[in-house]
């Protein structure tokens, strides 16, 4: 029994070795390939992604309204006090000056209080609205099963959104590309790298591939400048578009 063990181990050892060598060769070849040869540009449109959907959660009490909305309100209120005071004045009859001053103060006080009251009402209305909004958001976001989670890759509806946005960009830029005929017949090609902020404004543009014709390159850069602001990117993509940007290739097809 003991004698058979060494015989069994030896051939097994050989197979491991040859397997390892084979794997090294294959993996090494692929590593070399990816290091030496540039990878092709991924055409997002042809990618298919699958997301795993979970069962929905139960909706609990809504979240408190966001404070940012309250901060916005005082700015809007400023023009209104002027209005209210003016409206009040014609109603008063002719009164002695001292009394008039007192009356004015009272009037102003009343007006301010009214405003405060109005504010409160508006606030409660807004609170209710924001609560309803929150519920809606919860329904959309946390009620899993209705929507596909964003994940870290383009999936489902996000892919459609992405494709739609790219199409929007394309038709938007097209509208601004005025090319003189003398530059349009030579099949010239210029590629411009563009970065846009979350509002679509161009924050960076640079020629990454020149056509060899300065005037043609200049027209491409001017087109990008004229096209700013670009369509507002969906919030999911705005980070990428601002940090990494995107390339626009200008080449007229016959």
């Amino acid at each position: 029994m003991m004698e058979t063990h060494p015989r069994v181990e030896k051939p097994f050892h050989k197979e491991i070795k040859s397997s390892v060598i084979f794997h090294v060769i294959v993996l090494g070849a692929f590593s070399l390939k990816s290091l030496i040869f540039s990878s092709p540009i991924i055409d997002y449109k042809s990618a298919i992604r699958v997301d795993i959907v979970g069962l929905p959660d139960k909706i609990t009490s809504p979240r408190p309204p966001q404070k940012a909305e309250e901060k916005a309100k005082p700015e809007e209120k400023k023009p209104e006090p002027a209005k209210k005071v003016e409206e009040k004045k014609p109603e008063e009859k002719v009164v002695p000056i001292a009394k008039e001053k007192k009356n004015i103060k009272d009037v102003q006080k009343n007006a301010l209080e009214k405003l405060k009251a109005l504010d409160k009402i508006k606030n409660t209305v807004n609170n209710e609205k924001s609560q309803m909004d929150a519920i809606e958001r919860l329904k959309k976001q946390e009620y899993r099963g209705n929507n596909l989670a964003a994940g870290n890759a383009l999936t489902g509806t996000d892919k459609f959104q992405y494709d739609a946005y790219i199409g929007e960009l394309d038709s938007h830029v097209k509208g601004f590309w005025d090319l003189p005929r003398w530059l349009s017949e030579d099949n010239l090609k210029t590629v411009v790298k563009v970065k846009i902020d979350s509002r679509g404004f161009v924050i960076f543009k640079q020629i990454v591939s020149s056509s060899g014709n300065q005037a043609y390159d200049e027209v491409a850069m001017q087109t990008v400048a004229k096209a700013s602001p670009f369509p507002v990117p969906p919030s999911k993509f705005s980070g990428t578009l601002e940090a990494n940007g995107f390339n626009i290739e200008f080449q007229k097809q016959e």
């Binding site: 349009s184 940007g245 390339n247 626009i248 007229k252």
Partner: peptide, 15 residues
């Protein structure tokens, strides 16, 4: 893999 969002504009207003 190095990639980039790549838009090909092929239609110009020739004037």
């Amino acid at each position: 893999q190095s990639d980039g969002i790549y838009i090909k504009v092929t239609d110009a207003n020739v004037k």
